[in-house]
Design a protein around this nucleic acid. Structure first.
Lengths: 207, 207
DNA sequence: GCATAAACTATGCATCTGTATAATATGCGA
DNA sequence: TCGCATATTATACAGATGCATAGTTTATGC
């Protein structure tokens, strides 16, 4: 028998086991028995901590998105200049652990579920809103620092463009971790962003 | 019983049924019985046309990627100028049927399979290579038309950037078909591309 | 140390899965 | 119209799956 643990601890292990399982074998292989195997417990225990399989999948999706968000925003300090914050944010989004095969696989495995299941859709909406708003503010700050005062429409369009760029580069980078190295990916991302926003690239890239 | 059909015809119906099934209910619901239901036949028939479930999934993935490729490249004529071709290509990639919830769902559902299954990986590699090379040529042509003569490295970087941009916008557009309308998405894409490539936006957008 | 709640395992059940194969229906050439 | 290959259905089977529940172990307060 697995050594006995306090509730939150075991619950956390089970959630991580779910993420590992999905990243390695895909959502179809994420059965209660397989997840239990990854966690080193027996299948019945999952129903002790979660009221259904859907429950553990939702918890896993929440943790995944939260980590993704934190991996990017955790690198930002409020005492940086707006441009520094934007640059840090971009660099974080173009390097591990965000740019990894695992994170892209988790994202792709979860995404369809948000289209067939309302609870999953809510989770995605929640984090999508947080991310989008935060990103918009970052861009707004950087533009102001360079004397630009964009209208709401302009700001929206620029946000969509740069956000799309970063997402696209994230996918390209994650799908070809061998042929495209991180330094180049970051250089491409920073350069492209400075062109899109019409602000000069930072003189000394923090790499 | 379903009316008897010639081989290729029925096979084609089964492949489309697979795509419809995956788009509507996800890969986990794409069982042989469910696919057969979508096609209006009984489950045994699938094994008559395909040697295994993997076989029909591979055929469906091939057809999906081929259609995606054709939807973009079918809009291009060799008698256009290079800039027109690039613009047409970008517009096609930023409008239906490429920008739809269905195509993104299919893409997301299939992608993980390419990481767990070699045959699926080969299919993706094949179309990825074709797409990437074609896109690179489009950009090369447009740049030359404006007097730019990029080095291989520069061309590679620009391709990665614009390709990422378009992919990212595709995802944003497909995920929010209600809040982001096609005209705006296309305007954002064309404007951003012209900035990235440092060539003027075409005077009369073909919309 | 002992009772008791909480953590964990073991097992069973109805349903679904991919595959196999036997049985049946259909259209086409003669 | 009659054979006959082929298209299609029907059914069976072993294994997997989500869920339920009864049984067993462990920690912890008294």
């Amino acid at each position: 028998m697995a050594t006995r643990r306090t509730g939150n601890d075991r619950e956390s292990v089970l959630i991580d086991a779910t993420l590992t399982c999905i990243a390695r074998e895909g959502i179809s292989a994420a059965t209660v028995r397989n997840i239990a195997d990854y966690a080193g417990v027996t299948n019945g225990l999952i129903r002790f901590y979660f009221k259904s399989k859907d429950g553990i999948l939702q918890a896993a999706y929440r943790r995944f998105l939260e980590r993704l968000f934190e991996a990017a925003h955790g690198t930002i300090d409020s005492d940086m200049t707006a441009c520094e914050r934007l640059e840090r944010y971009l660099l974080a989004n173009l390097s591990p652990p965000i740019v990894t095969a695992d994170s892209l696989l988790l994202w792709a495995n979860f995404l369809p579920l948000t289209h067939y299941d309302d609870a999953m859709a809510d989770i995605r909406r929640h984090w999508y809103t947080r991310t989008t708003l935060a990103f918009r503010d970052l861009i707004h700050g950087a533009l102001e620092e360079h004397g630009h005062a964009p209208s709401d429409t302009e700001l929206h369009r620029l946000s969509v463009a740069v956000n799309g760029l970063i997402d696209g580069l994230w996918i390209e980078g994650s799908l070809s971790t061998e042929t495209l190295d991180i330094d180049e990916l970051q250089a491409i991302g920073l350069d492209a962003t400075s062109r899109l926003l019409d602000i000069p690239a930072s003189p000394s890239p923090a790499r």
